[in-house]
Design a protein around this nucleic acid. Sequence first.
DNA 1: GTCTATAAACCGATAGAC
DNA 2: GTCTATCGGTTTATAGAC
Lengths: 196, 196
Amino acid sequence: MTVENTQTRRAELLAIAAGLFAEKGFKNTTVRDIADASGILSGSLYHHFDSKESMVDEILSTFQEELFAAYDAVLAGDDDARTKIERAVRLSFEAIDRHRHEVAIFQNDADHLGKFERFGYLAERNRQSREVWMTLLTEGVESGALRPDLDVELTYRFIRDTVWVAVRWYRPGGKLTHRDIADQYLTILLDGIAHA
Amino acid sequence: MTVENTQTRRAELLAIAAGLFAEKGFKNTTVRDIADASGILSGSLYHHFDSKESMVDEILSTFQEELFAAYDAVLAGDDDARTKIERAVRLSFEAIDRHRHEVAIFQNDADHLGKFERFGYLAERNRQSREVWMTLLTEGVESGALRPDLDVELTYRFIRDTVWVAVRWYRPGGKLTHRDIADQYLTILLDGIAHA
DNA sequence: GTCTATAAACCGATAGAC
DNA sequence: GTCTATCGGTTTATAGAC
């Protein structure tokens, strides 16, 4: 088998594993589940990967690398504060659309996995995410785009939670695109649901 | 042992189990974990409960009964639409404060448990919750309290998600009380974060 | 009401044939 | 690259002594 096909097979297996991890949880997914879904036996998986842990490791680290590169691009841009916040929110919903398995795994299992040394980068990424949002929100308040009496820390948690938790019900190909949902969420977040 | 003490012991064991289920997840908590934390051996737990499943069943059903009685009281009241929405939100944060283990278990494990017949009432409670919020929001739009162009279905999901997901970081005795958090969340939800 | 002891099933992972 | 076969450990749950 060529190098290309080997890497393709590896990616295929990881995609199958990601779907199962997202659906059932990491601990609740057995290597036999992954092997069954892949049409091979459990022992054969160990030709491709060291362990079940190394599979979820590769899934999460690859995703996080791509996600944070996108956040960095927003931060480095020269848009005003409000536009940057909008871009960061839209980017997150796009990640849910394109990588919903990875987002779901991160949401459901990162806390537990993060306790092990091997997954220390997950906690580091959490800090990095907090820094991105706190920077954007503080800039927003200082520039007058956001209400001056805002509790920035609480607002950060509010945005983080509301955005990522949408992975629980969002399905690509549904009535609303990820762009529609981002629009609606931004309207509520910025202007509220009360009648003006 | 008296009936009172027997029931007290049962409640003690359930409280210990709830804490572990909330922290590590239902599947990831072993009966040995529960027994260890209770100061007895795993076999002894089966004198009190049929199975691990029946423990989480009792924990969740008891909590849901109390929670939905509270929602019903809000619906049955004669407050205006906006006040009812505020009361329902505050009530949810109070539930997170008083029953955070139960809320966490519901958030993390209800989807998976709900697939089994025994836990069919979880899906039924979800429908009931949706009905409560859809009623409140529709009433809010029709009375002019909420923006007329609101996507009610999406707003329902937004509120549901944002409220319950707070159980991930809220800890009683922290800097902010559950009342403080409800106030801030309602301000953001109703009026947004943008500068007027 | 708790303990001792253990059954029966399931889990992650390995060794070696093909 | 996959299969056969299996090891060692863990899990839920049970039976019976105390």
